[in-house]
């Protein structure tokens, strides 16, 4: 069908998981493009956070101040959202933030594989956050953590209904948390691919989709950073609910 119109758009092809060293089967241990881009993500994180801060300079170099800005940004976010006692969980949240940030940004390199566009990855992250935060809530507050769903400010008659709504929204959290990130990444990359497919088919007129592509690319850069920020700040918000469940 696509061949009839004269150009082929395979927007989902870029998300395929393929073994790195030939072969067909993808076992759980097979080094795949996922492995490659996760490794590059780890490498970038190490470069920014470790190699850049090696100098421990009092007056930082550019890369060092980038690392320090990232540190300060996440630290500030946690302190603002969860309060002082959330700072204990700083390394975990920092891990999530830099992982998503670099996975998103590396995914924007042409021909790159975007690990965060896969629901498996984001669902794992979101479920990890969800389970950790829920467990933390019960560990810190015991059964009184459940009072979070029993809103005492509301009239008594409304409370059961509200409790059901709160409960549902609580369990929808990991769903929206993961799909937001994966969906944003997937949508952005699919749109870029579609624009690129137009550019391949239109000949001279392809300047229009290429211009669109440039604009979309810039927008996707923004989205990559904002989604990392949003995922992290939502993690902080959920963490705050576990630390201080009584509104």
């Amino acid at each position: 069908m696509a061949e009839e119109i004269g150009f082929v758009i395979e927007p989902m092809e870029q998300f395929e998981v393929t073994p790195l060293f030939g072969g067909e089967a993808v076992h759980w241990y097979t080094p795949t493009n996922v492995t490659l881009w996760l490794a590059l993500t780890v490498l970038s994180v190490a470069l920014l956070m470790v190699a850049a801060s090696r100098g421990r300079a009092l007056v930082p170099s550019r890369v060092q101040s980038m690392a320090e800005l990232t540190y300060g940004f996440v630290h500030q976010m946690i302190e603002d959202v969860t309060g002082k006692d959330g700072v204990r969980y700083f390394p975990y949240i920092m891990t999530i933030f830099v992982f998503i940030l670099f996975a998103n940004l590396l995914g924007l390199i042409p021909w790159a594989f975007t690990t965060t566009s896969h629901i498996a990855v984001t669902a794992f992250l979101a479920l990890a956050v969800f389970l950790t935060v829920t467990a933390l809530g019960f560990v810190l507050h015991g059964l009184s953590f459940l009072k979070m769903f029993w809103i005492e400010a509301a009239p008594l008659a409304l409370r059961p209904a509200l409790a059901i709504i709160e409960l549902i929204s609580y369990f929808v959290r990991p769903v929206s948390h993961s799909i937001r990130l994966a969906g944003n990444m997937m949508a952005g990359h699919a749109v870029l691919k579609v624009f690129a497919g137009f550019a391949g088919a239109l000949g001279v007129a392809s300047v229009v989709p290429i211009a669109g592509l440039v604009a979309m690319y810039a927008f996707e850069l923004l989205v990559a950073v904002i989604q990392a920020y949003v995922f992290t700040i939502l993690t902080c918000v959920y963490l705050k609910d576990a630390l201080h469940p009584h509104h």
Partner: peptide, 23 residues
């Protein structure tokens, strides 16, 4: 600003759901 981004994220998530349905 943090609240702004959280609000945008919540509103946008529903659009992403419809995109997901499309996919």
């Amino acid at each position: 600003t943090a609240m702004l981004f959280i609000g945008i994220a919540f509103a946008e998530a529903l659009g992403i759901f419809s995109f997901l349905v499309a996919l």
